[in-house]
Simulated assay, not measured.
Amino acid sequence: MMKILCVCGLGQGTSLILRINVENVLREMGIEADVENTDVSSASAEHPDYIITSNELAQSLEGHSSKIIIVNNYFDTNEIKAALEANLA
């Protein structure tokens, strides 16, 4: 199963909101995935298929083995859906 990590600065509030929105969008798209949320420093030690984070935090994850998907508004399910559609293989 595909593994997706939703990342914010502290791994608390915003990444949880992003995770819930990503799970909802994936369900609408009919895609099954294991979605988790964490902070940026923990994310660098993990190896999911995809990391979803903001443009700002993506810079600190440069060179990571996972494919990084940029979402700037964690509340905007349309942006999340467009980002997922453009990046999921």
Rank of each mutant, 00 (worst) to 15 (best):
E56K: 10
T53P: 07
I52V: 15
V35F: 03
Q12V: 10
E23V: 07
K81L: 04
I17E: 00
E28N: 14
Y74S: 05
V40R: 06
R27T: 14
I31W: 03
R19F: 03
F75W: 08
H47Y: 13
G11K: 12
V71Q: 12
G11A: 08
T77I: 14
C8E: 00
L16S: 09
E56M: 11
C6H: 06
D49L: 13
R19P: 00
L18E: 05
M29P: 07
I52G: 11
E23L: 09
D49K: 10
S42W: 03
S66L: 09
S60G: 01
S65W: 09
L18T: 05
L10K: 09
L57F: 09
G11Y: 03
A86R: 07
A43G: 05
L26W: 04
H47E: 14
V35C: 07
I80Q: 04
D76K: 15
N21W: 01
K67T: 15
T38C: 14
Y50D: 15
G63F: 11
Q12H: 00
N24F: 00
C6R: 10
S60D: 00
Y74Q: 04
L10W: 04
I17T: 14
H64S: 15
G9T: 12
M1F: 08
T77W: 13
A43W: 00
M29Y: 13
V25E: 14
A83C: 05
M29K: 07
I80V: 03
T14M: 03
A45K: 14
I4K: 01
R27H: 13
Q12F: 00
C6Y: 06
V7H: 01
L88S: 03
E36C: 08
S44L: 10
I52H: 08
K3L: 01
L57E: 05
G13C: 05
H64G: 13
A82G: 05
P48S: 15
